[in-house]
Amino acid sequence: MPNIQQTRFFYQNTVDVLKTNIKGNLPWYRGEYNNAPAQVKDVNGQMSVAASADFSCFEVLNSNCADSDDSKNVIVVYDAFKFLTPQQAAEERIWTYATHQSELAKQYTSNRWNKIPSDDDKAVKYIQSHYFVSGVRGLIRDNAVSRLWWMGYIASRCHDYDLKKR
């Protein structure tokens, strides 16, 4: 029987509040101050899973914006979160927590996707794509962290493909 531990995530109302207040939190997203937006204080829950997410994996992610580094990043994130089921990995609240609350994931997200437009309205759309999850395409393609997990999950299902040899 696996050792059941807890993995953190945001409550849905926290995600909703953060989404509603993106424009007011633009200085935080742009790296103008380090403290998390006020809405994320003590507003997370726990989910029972067979293991615990190792957020220290973000220390070794390469965020120099080169797409060629994505395969290495996929291995790091998928290995750290491979205990998630697809249903759990489809949970927006996990990935929003990672991009907002885990300091290392937030740093990776801001470094890797540090192209926030100067126009505030365009910046809001950009942040919605990379810091949150919007639909299935957003989950698999756009969110800074979930996309890495999903690429790893999909590659792990191909029996003749070894992601670590790429």
Rank of each mutant, 00 (worst) to 15 (best):
I94V: 10
F58M: 12
D162S: 02
I94W: 02
Y131A: 07
S102P: 01
M1K: 13
N114H: 05
A53N: 10
A51S: 14
Y29R: 03
D54T: 07
Q88L: 07
S52A: 12
K41A: 15
S118R: 09
F9C: 14
S68H: 12
V40C: 15
Q12K: 15
N21W: 09
Y11W: 15
N13I: 10
S52G: 09
Y126C: 05
Y33E: 10
D42C: 11
W28T: 04
K72N: 14
L104W: 00
R30I: 03
G152S: 02
Q5M: 12
Y33T: 11
R93L: 05
N73D: 05
V15L: 14
I127H: 04
Y11V: 14
A155P: 00
G152N: 03
N114V: 02
Q39I: 11
W149C: 05
S134G: 08
D162N: 04
V15Y: 12
V17Q: 10
G31H: 03
I127A: 07
L148C: 06
Y161V: 02
N35G: 11
S118Q: 13
I94E: 01
L104F: 01
S118T: 10
G45T: 06
S118P: 04
D54Y: 10
N21D: 14
A38G: 15
Y97L: 06
G24S: 11
S48C: 01
I140G: 03
F55C: 07
S71G: 12
V124K: 05
K115L: 08
R141N: 12
V15F: 12
K23G: 06
T109S: 12
W95Y: 02
D79V: 12
D162K: 03
Q39W: 13
N34P: 01
N73K: 04
A155Q: 02
M1N: 08
W95E: 08
Y126T: 11
S52T: 13
D121M: 09
D121L: 13
P2H: 13
T109V: 08
Q39R: 14
Q107I: 00
V15H: 04
S63C: 07
R93C: 10
F83L: 13
Q6N: 14
H159V: 00
R147M: 06
T7Y: 11
W150S: 05
A51C: 13
A98R: 00
A123C: 02
A89P: 00
T99L: 02
D16M: 13
T96E: 03
A89V: 02
F58V: 00
I4C: 10
A36E: 15
F132C: 02
D121Y: 12
A53V: 08
Q128Y: 00
E91W: 07
Y11L: 13
N3L: 11
N3W: 12
H100I: 04
L163W: 00
I116V: 15
G138E: 07
I154F: 03
Y131R: 06
L104S: 01
V40L: 15
Y33H: 15
